[in-house]
């Protein structure tokens, strides 16, 4: 290396590549090998079905009602649940945000998320079952009889489980967005005489819209990929045969990894369509700082 030329290492360092940057490599290799590669491999594999044709798997998927029907089944569960959770989470988050015992409530609500869907499913089988405490209470209150209400092993079982694990998730996300809004903005509006409904409509909703869009997407994606509770609490052969069940059966019961990959890709694509759709509509709303201006 001649004295006049700038050494290679220095030139690299000037563009941000030095020993420290290399620390990112192990993590990058891991994600490339275990996430990006399997995904790409799955995508390619899905175009090489057992019968050899290029689009065979997708043709099979979209011609068999037992398979393409799962898209509708899953949407029929995930969309109403996500909307319900979001609609319930916003007012609750507004009530909680300035409370002193906020931490107690957030801790209680984080329980179902940490315990996970499998445990919630086992508890629900007992609690919402025909002899469980919930239906017993209902029949004492005269709201129904154990024979007429069925809350497990059907659509409602899965629906309720998605509310129980999904609502806290949606709520905690919403709460973090709501607490990010400067109180000064609300106080200013109140001083100018805006009622709470007007304050919500004109101050909070525009500021919250981007956050709510992201919350909706994350909650929807979670609900859309429901698996354990759809099997344990639903009717996995019929009304709650969601798309993840179809993918699982193809992979681990028929050992058709090609078809399973194709179903996983369809699942990913539907999620992507909904997420992109929601985020696109986000651009119709205000985007910018949610903090009050100084002065």
């Amino acid at each position: 290396m001649s004295g006049s030329a700038i050494p290679f290492r220095v030139r690299l360092a000037a563009s941000g590549l030095d020993g420290v940057t290399l620390l990112v490599i192990p993590a990058m290799v891991l994600i490339l090998a275990l996430f990006v590669y399997p995904f790409s491999y799955g995508l390619i594999l899905s175009f090489h079905p057992k019968d050899g044709s290029f689009l065979g798997n997708y043709g099979h998927f979209f011609s068999d009602p037992f398979l393409y029907g799962t898209i509708y089944t899953t949407l029929a569960l995930a969309l109403p649940v996500t909307l319900l959770n979001l609609v319930a989470a916003v007012p609750v988050a507004f009530r909680i945000r300035r409370m002193r015992h906020q931490r107690l409530i957030t801790t209680i609500l984080v329980l179902p998320i940490t315990l996970g869907t499998v445990l919630v499913a086992e508890g629900m089988l007992n609690y919402f079952g025909p002899q469980g405490w919930f239906i017993r209470t209902l029949s004492i209150l005269g709201l129904g009889s154990p024979a007429s209400i069925k809350l497990v092993h059907n659509y409602w079982g899965v629906f309720l489980s998605l509310v129980i694990t999904g609502f806290p998730f949606t709520f905690l996300l919403t709460l973090s967005y709501v607490s990010g809004i400067d109180v000064a903005l609300e106080n200013a509006a109140a001083t100018l005489g805006a009622r709470s409904a007007a304050r919500f409509r004109t101050i909070f909703l525009p500021l919250l819209a981007p956050g709510l869009a992201i919350t909706f997407c994350l909650s929807f994606v979670q609900a859309y990929s429901v698996f354990p509770s759809a099997v344990l609490l639903g009717a996995p052969a019929g009304p709650t045969r969601v798309i993840s069940i179809a993918a699982y059966e193809a992979a681990f019961e028929q050992y058709d990894y090609s078809l399973a990959s194709a179903i996983a890709m369809v699942m990913g694509a539907v999620q992507l369509v909904v997420v992109v759709g929601v985020l696109m509509s986000r651009s119709l709303f205000y985007r910018g700082p949610a903090a009050g201006a100084k002065g």
Binding site: F39, G42, L45, S225, Y248, A251, A260, G268, Q271
Partner: peptide, 11 residues
């Protein structure tokens, strides 16, 4: 979500 990439990953 894990179930979406879990199936190609398991493969």
């Amino acid at each position: 979500p894990p179930i979406t990439y879990g199936i190609p990953l398991a493969t």
